[in-house]
């Protein structure tokens, strides 16, 4: 795959999937280091622990890190609390990603998306072609047979590569355990200060949480199944503070992973609409 492109990169979102993907890359290129940079699209609203973890991990593996935020966001002081999840995600994730890809002219970008996350992702290719506007066209996807991938592109077009397409959430955790891969501590249950916001239990992560919400703050035993922007990511009640307990919880789970994500529920078919515009 790397041999097929001029300027590849790996999208590093700091979550568990990214951690596994990074680990796989380290293994694949050993004894060399992976010959591409990590790219983090910072929405300015990530959990603080994520950013700490990112900097520590990148230093350990010794790879180049590109951090990018959409400058428009800082200008208007973008906030999911006041601007709503849709505008925030459009500007700080979808737009920001397109901007950083254009700026660095990356022609192939690894992503950690999995087909089991959401219905429209279930139809995503492993090598997903994007036109020069980064748009995904579900009707014009390249067929993928056996392990043969078509990586041919013209100038300014790109390919998103999803090596974890066929992994499930459970596979991810079992592999993290088997390979002893470090992950952000937020995945493990602990006493945390949380508040109710838009029907979710969100973490009081910094001083930007609106004061009126803070009145209801409680300390509860919670963990996160996925990590994104802290005001948009719901915690779950859980006492799973070890990998064994997380895997066990997974085996008996009755809700899906992304049920804790506000952005999937904006409207029916919302993930598909985001993808058409260039979201991962």
């Amino acid at each position: 795959m790397i041999a097929n492109f001029n300027n590849p990169a790996m999208l590093y979102s700091i979550g568990k999937d990214s951690s596994v993907m990074l680990h796989l890359a380290l293994k694949a290129f050993y004894p060399a280091k992976p010959p591409f940079p990590l790219v983090h699209v910072d929405t300015l609203w990530k959990f603080r622990e994520m950013i700490e973890f990112r900097d520590k991990r990148v230093a350990e593996v010794g790879m180049e890190l590109v951090v990018y935020s959409n400058p428009q966001g800082a200008e208007i002081n973008i906030s999911p609390f006041s601007h709503g999840s849709k505008l925030h995600t459009d500007m700080m994730k979808t737009e920001a990603l397109k901007q950083v890809l254009d700026k660095h002219k990356f022609d192939a970008i690894f992503g950690g998306a999995r087909r089991d996350e959401e219905q429209s992702r279930a139809k995503e290719r492993i090598f997903s072609f994007r036109d020069k506007y980064h748009a995904w066209n579900p009707k014009l996807q390249r067929p993928e047979l056996w392990n043969l991938y078509n990586s041919n592109i013209n100038r300014d077009e790109s390919i998103r590569v999803f090596p974890l397409s066929n992994w499930t959430e459970k596979d991810i955790w079992e592999y993290i355990k088997q390979e002893n891969i470090p992950v952000v501590p937020l995945y493990f249950a602990a006493q945390r200060e949380v508040i109710e916001f838009e029907g979710m239990k969100i973490l009081v992560d910094d001083a930007r949480v609106p004061k009126e919400l803070l009145k209801e703050a409680k300390t509860e035993l919670v963990r996160f199944r996925t990590l994104g922007c802290y005001p948009l990511t719901g915690a779950i009640h859980s006492d799973a503070n070890t990998l064994e307990k997380i895997i066990n919880e997974m085996t008996h789970a009755t809700t899906s992973e992304r049920s804790g994500r506000a952005i999937d529920k904006d409207q029916i078919g919302s993930m598909e609409k985001k993808k058409l515009q260039g979201y991962f």
């Binding site: 087909r115 429209s120 279930a122 139809k123 579900p138 009707k139 996807q141 066929n166 029916i268 078919g269």
Partner: peptide
């Protein structure tokens, strides 16, 4: 039946994966 447009047509037009 995954994609929205297909849902409306009432047919699946591609390969969909389930785990």
């Amino acid at each position: 039946d995954g994609l929205q447009s297909e849902r409306e047509q009432g047919i699946t037009i591609d390969v969909a994966y389930r785990y």
